[in-house]
């Protein structure tokens, strides 16, 4: 869907993007990650021609982006940036309606669309009459996402979209965005420098440094063998624990019927974890309570199973 072929972009003597080859499949969420100044934002901006490469080619849907006039191209690509960039002189509704209006959508369709988009990001349609200055950071960024999706573009470019909100809000926004993405299957290029964010969201992760892509793989494929390299150093030793946040307790729990508990399951005094918690959270609870076994509760609060430490960590090699 998006393909970079030997893309180069220099600013003066600095090669911001230094020969990038990368492909993103339709419906895939690819996270570009790397330290500040590694060229990830510049690379992202070549897709909608906000940055023109010095050489190389960017393809969208098999056609070089140079073949499209920039305005038309940008209207078919959603764009979300860290500073949100809501237009303060327009209502929330008018902000969401910007791109459909540029594309000539008529009034009735427009107002229906705005309502749908606000509901999609978890805001009541009545919010459309509010002004951006009345919104919190998290609400503003939801509107930013709604605005980017309003014309139903197949591609979404997101440049550190959740970078400027507090950590709790960020996690909530990530979770909600993931839910939206599971419904809409957009092709997403997502720039961040936050490893946890990359692990939570990515189908594939591309690690960048000094304008080059060092490694491009699924989150599960980054393993300890990288520990010595820059990639391993950047992702950090805790990557092995962070990656557990991608899986939920439900996937590995040992189902225990209520009548059989007491067998090999944990006793009534065992700490409990909800089935929709992540394995990372379960491990954290084990570490905090110094137990290797947890009770698992369903959303209704009833016990539905048990979780042991080896279920979380898998089988281990003996000490070499």
């Amino acid at each position: 869907m998006i393909r970079f072929r030997n893309v180069v972009k220099s600013y003066g003597p600095v090669r911001a993007v230094d020969g990038v080859d990368l492909g993103i499949d339709p419906g895939e969420l690819c996270v570009l990650i790397g330290p500040s100044g590694c060229g990830k934002s510049t690379l992202l901006r070549t897709v909608n021609r906000m940055v023109e490469p010095d050489s190389g080619e960017v393809f969208v849907d098999g056609r070089p982006v140079r073949a499209h006039p920039p305005e038309g191209l940008r209207r078919r690509i959603g764009y979300v940036i860290q500073s949100v960039g809501l237009f303060p002189h327009m209502t929330v509704g008018d902000n969401v309606a910007v791109v459909p209006r540029l594309l000539g959508m008529d009034k009735t369709a427009l107002s229906r669309r705005v309502g749908e988009m606000l509901e999609l990001v978890g805001l009541a349609p009545s919010w459309s009459a509010r002004w951006p200055r009345e919104l919190s950071g998290g609400e503003a960024q939801r509107v930013g996402v709604a605005r980017a999706l309003a014309a139903d573009p197949p591609i979404l470019l997101m440049d550190e979209p959740f970078g400027s909100v507090d950590p709790l809000t960020r996690v909530r926004l990530q979770r909600e965005f993931l839910a939206i993405q599971r419904r809409l299957h957009k092709t997403v290029l997502f720039v961040t420098h936050d490893v946890e964010e990359a692990i939570r969201l990515a189908d594939r992760i591309a690690v960048m440094r000094s304008g080059r892509i060092l490694r491009h793989a699924g989150p599960e494929e980054f393993v300890a063998s990288d520990a010595e390299s820059f990639v391993g150093e950047f992702l950090g030793l805790e990557y092995g624990v962070e990656i557990l946040s991608r899986r939920s307790v439900r996937e590995v729990l040992r189902p225990v019927g209520p009548e059989e508990s007491g067998g090999e399951g944990p006793g009534d005094g065992a700490p409990a974890v909800r089935a929709d918690a992540s394995l990372k959270e379960a491990l954290g609870l084990m570490a905090a309570r110094k137990v290797e076994c947890l009770a698992v509760h369903g959303t209704d609060g009833r016990r539905i199973g048990a979780l042991r430490m080896e279920d979380v960590l898998g089988t281990w090699k003996a000490c070499p």
């Binding site: 305005e71 191209l73 940008r74 078919r76 764009y79 940036i81 960039g85 237009f87 910007v98």
Partner: peptide, 24 residues
Amino acid sequence: GILDAARGMGMSRRQVFLRVQAPL
């Protein structure tokens, strides 16, 4: 950031000026 968003959403230079920059 606001001007970047306006351009990135596909407004022409003229539209960025008339619809966003001038009113602000």
